[in-house]
């Protein structure tokens, strides 16, 4: 056809030198590289400042601090990518072990079904969050703030703000598997990260989640069931919150209502997701990045504690360190993009 060569010329883009393109493509493909560099740099710094940082014992401490935040962060990543957020996951994490305790100790339900009950309840909470956001059109920041307080109230009222004991029936093997064994929470964490990295990058669900967050109208026009995607991700986030809460409760051998109320879990998880490279605006995110972000935050907490920084100045340093990591991350990302395709 005569018109084609002209058209081909018009539509062909100019190419950069082949070597540069190939190297840059690798870096661009591996967006988590910059977060990994920051995490490694931090480990180097802390190792230089405190001999104990990389001992087996302390690595276990870091792993145990990373795991729950990373697990919740994975759920947050899915939501952020689809254009939403959930502030109530922390309370779901606190509530889940209480539900197990109530089921086993007050209603005589065996332990494993009680676990299922806890996860089912978390799924219901996520479902309600999702419906309020999609059908009632309340922005997720506000909606989940409301459910945060509601669930916190339920938690504190039913527990009388008093910590509870892990049910007798759950001691022993079950306790070990679900967080008490040294590396148990890390193994769960890595499993969750692996599964959801695949979900986000290699399944329809992940692709549609990205579409919903990137171009809501476009995704709807293309026929994607956007509400279903959002509600589903809310449910996943809540269930992951429940998992994190159970692991923490079993690890410390006590069911503590305070883990939900403070900023500990929710804020840490959101920070981890964002430090790891997930955009707050939606449409783009990385699960492995969230793991690295949680690792960075755990390194900071643990490292400065090892060095001996006390509580009041601690906050200054933690805040400064988070900002510095983010700036470094952004700087490296920009380097990547400009040097890339």
């Amino acid at each position: 056809m005569t018109g084609n060569s002209l058209i081909q010329e018009t539509l062909q883009k100019p190419q950069a030198p082949p070597v540069l393109r190939r190297g840059a493509t690798v870096l661009v493909r591996w967006r988590e590289a910059s977060v990994l560099i920051v995490a490694i740099a931090m480990a180097v710094y802390f190792r230089a400042s405190a001999d104990a940082f990389l001992t087996h014992d302390n690595l276990r401490n870091i792993a145990q601090a990373t795991a729950p935040a990373a697990i919740v962060a994975v759920g947050i990543v899915l939501l952020l990518v689809s254009g939403e957020i959930d502030l109530s996951v922390g309370v779901v994490a606190a509530l889940a072990p209480f539900l197990v305790h109530y089921a086993v100790d007050l209603y005589g339900i065996p332990v494993l079904p009680a676990f299922l009950l806890a996860f089912a309840s978390a799924a219901v909470i996520g479902f309600c969050n999702g419906v309020i956001v999609t059908k009632l059109k309340v922005p997720s920041l506000v909606a989940t703030l409301g459910s945060f307080y509601l669930l916190l109230g339920i938690l504190l009222t039913t527990s009388h703000a008093y910590p509870a004991q892990i049910p007798e029936a759950a001691q022993g093997r079950i306790r070990l598997i679900f967080g008490a064994a040294d590396w148990s929470s890390l193994i769960w964490c890595l499993g969750v990260v692996a599964v959801f990295q695949v979900v986000l990058t290699r399944t329809r669900w992940g692709l549609h989640t990205i579409s919903v967050g990137g171009n809501l109208i476009g995704a709807t026009e293309a026929g994607i069931r956007v509400n279903r995607i959002k509600i589903g991700n809310f449910m996943l986030a809540s269930m992951l919150g429940a998992l994190a809460g159970l692991l923490e409760a079993f690890r410390i051998n006590s069911i503590d209502p305070n883990i939900g109320g403070g900023t500990a879990l929710t804020f840490t998880a959101i920070s981890a997701a964002v430090i790891g490279g997930t955009a707050l605006a939606g449409g783009s995110g990385t699960v492995i990045g969230a793991l690295l972000g949680a690792l960075i935050l755990a390194e900071l907490q643990n490292g400065f504690n090892l060095i001996g920084v006390s509580a009041n100045p601690f906050n200054i340093i933690l805040g400064a360190a988070i900002l510095l990591s983010m700036i470094a991350n952004q700087y490296l990302s920009r380097l990547r993009r400009s040097g890339g395709v």
Binding site: A52, S254, D256
Partner: peptide, 19 residues
């Protein structure tokens, strides 16, 4: 911990032991 989060206190204790 700032907000009575027992897990944070346990983490701080473990870190002190490692350190």
């Amino acid at each position: 911990s700032q907000n009575s989060v027992v897990a944070e206190m346990v983490n701080a204790t473990n870190t002190a032991i490692s350190g």
